[in-house]
């Protein structure tokens, strides 16, 4: 024989006797990790689940590896290079004359080659105002002066 039950109206809804109260909170505790949610902060407000690990925002945090080609305005005459390339010896009229400390360049000289005095010990030179030269014509730190 079927067990009889008595119905009552509770909070405006018909409810049989013996039914436990309905929990008021749909979710107790935290979400299952797999469930999608949006919290307005994580993932820039986009949906996420707790099972996704954080995606680093920065793709690159350090300079290029040595083997990678690069262009640097201050290196290799702005020609593409990698730091692993063996440096080509400078070619120029007096290049690599390691003992050369002083030089006299007449006013009549109107052009000085790209690496004419590279890798010398010159600290100062004087040239004509209309003489064409390159930043690489003289060793680094060499002061270029001009005839009056």
């Amino acid at each position: 024989m079927a067990e009889e039950s008595t119905w009552k109206i509770i909070n405006g809804k018909p409810t049989p006797d013996g039914v436990p109260d309905l929990p008021q909170n749909l979710m107790i505790g935290s979400f299952p990790d797999a469930m999608w949610r949006i919290d307005g902060h994580t993932k820039k407000g986009l949906p996420f689940t707790n099972l996704m690990i954080e995606c680093p925002e920065k793709i690159m945090t350090k300079p290029y590896p040595d083997a990678l080609w690069r262009i640097d305005e201050l290196k290799n005459d702005v020609v593409t290079y990698t730091p692993l390339l063996v440096e080509t010896p400078d070619l120029g009229a007096f290049a690599n004359a390691a003992a050369l400390r002083r030089v006299s360049i007449p006013k009549s000289v109107k052009m000085i080659g790209k690496k004419a005095f590279r890798n010398t010990r010159l600290r100062s030179v004087t040239i004509a105002k209309d003489c064409t030269y390159y930043p690489t014509s003289f060793p680094e730190g060499c002061t270029v002066k001009f005839y009056e």
Partner: peptide, 8 residues
Amino acid sequence: RYCSFNFI
């Protein structure tokens, strides 16, 4: 599973 990738 549970990985993140950030590529250019």
